[in-house]
Design a protein around this nucleic acid. Structure first.
Length: 165
DNA sequence: TCCGTATTGAACT
DNA sequence: AGTTCAATACGGA
């Protein structure tokens, strides 16, 4: 059987995000593209009820996060990656809103203090930015570092959470 | 096996 | 104070 995936648009104040769902949960999230018209599924056609519910939660969570809301409810996350990457992502999920950690802190937290750069790599491979708060991870001297989907977004998200650089 | 990476800390100018 | 350099861990080609 083939892995079914569904892509649904998420309307936010910042634009239309695209959420990818697998059978296990939210598998990916894309920032609003220019006019990258990705084929999005219709909410009422072939979409399992479960996915619809996840999507509803996703939309709510995303808007709240963009508004700077601290505690939001997440849909199940289907994080696909290597063991190391999952460790990194899991560690990042534990970062409280409004707080930041350095790449070194993450590396140390997962038991590999020297893997600072590898952590950065895992972050770049993060399929679900915003939910997996890779934007809360800064360099050691509080520099913003980088952001795959656009540094622009990282800065915006940080400001939404009241984090001042 | 080699290269790139969203780092880091120390040395150098 | 700004910049360069080597080291380190992991993923992808």
């Amino acid at each position: 059987m083939k892995t079914q995936s569904f892509t649904l648009p998420v309307s936010t104040s910042a634009g239309e995000f695209l959420a990818h769902y697998s059978q296990r949960g939210l598998a990916g999230l894309n920032f609003p593209g220019r006019h990258s018209s990705v084929r999005a599924a219709k909410p009422d056609d072939g979409i399992p009820a479960e996915v619809s519910e996840w999507h509803r939660t996703t939309g709510s969570a995303l808007n709240k996060l963009l508004a700077g809301q601290k505690q939001v409810k997440f849909p199940p996350l289907d994080l696909a990656g290597t063991d190391f990457q999952k460790s990194v992502w899991h560690e990042m999920l534990k970062i409280a809103s409004g707080k930041t950690k350095s790449y070194g802190e993450i590396a140390e937290a997962i038991g590999k203090p020297g893997a600072v750069r590898a952590v950065g790599g895992a972050c770049g491979a993060n399929p679900i930015p915003v939910f997996v708060p890779c934007h809360r991870v800064l360099a050691a001297n509080k520099k913003i570092g980088g952001f795959s989907s656009g540094l622009h977004w990282k800065r915006r998200l940080l400001e939404s959470e009241g984090i001042v650089l």
